[in-house]
Amino acid sequence: MSFLSCLISGISLGSVYAIIALGYTMVYGIAKMLNFAHGDIIMVGAFAAFTVVNTMGLPTGLGILTAVVICTILGVTVERIAYKPLRGASSLAVLITAIGVSYLLQNLVLLIFGPTPKKFTSVIDLPPLQLAGGQLSISAVTIVTVITCLAVIVALTTFINKTKMGQAMLAVSEDREAATLMGINVNSTIALTFAIGSALAAVAGVLFCSAYDNLDPYIGSMPGIKAFVAAVFGGIGSIPGAFIGGIVLGIIEQLAKRYISDQLSNAIVFLVLILVLLIRPTGLFGRKISEKV
């Protein structure tokens, strides 16, 4: 039973990673940049929901909505101010800028809310599901997380495959110049991608903090980096890849925590990343891109 409950908590954690990884993978696929600040947008989302629900005592739905709206605006603003001017610059410059944005968000929140960790009361207060005569208990947060993750995947896949804007996103990620020639507004497509990615990050932030009930300005960086690991694992740019990568990573992390060492679980996750990159650099579902001279 302990193995099974470990597996379930792994799937739950993995679903959060998957939602974050979707944002990562979309931004990477289209803007060809590693958005280091993505993890910190999760943190901002969690703080927004915390302020609305826990401090102001307003209903949960409003809290989630506020988080999504704030993160969407934040994501688009960051893209406009920090990343857009660097389009065409070296990847080193873009990456350092993204690190700067990540630091900026962390320290802004640190100044506003202070360094003491907050207790985040779960936004979902439903009784846990009892299975096998009460031997296996699945918390409501876990169920909601997994369902949300599946809903997000379905919605996103439909959006990308069935709508004009989704097709424009695919075209830009395929070949930016050709997309421009076909009359696609590349700038607004990239902004839209950042908006969607950041909105997903807000949802992930609320779910993550509901499961772990701890909130400080640095909570975003680790899940952010791990979600990137998940995205790489599944093949960066691929939506089903991000989903499967996230779930697998969550399970690996929980199993490592349970059976190897609590303190080494992060090291094991990173070891997985290194092995994946060395054995199959394009990930599970990634395509190999040949280099042009």
């Binding site: 920090a82 001017p85 800028t97 690190i99 944005v101 630091y103 900026l104 320290n107 640190l110």
Partner: peptide, 24 residues
């Protein structure tokens, strides 16, 4: 020192924009 890291972050972004942005 409270604002140190914040200022680092802003300077880091500004510096990158100034030195690497094609328009700059």
């Amino acid at each position: 020192s409270t604002y140190r890291m914040l200022i680092y972050a802003i300077v880091l972004i500004a510096m990158m924009l100034f030195t690497s942005a094609p328009s700059a």
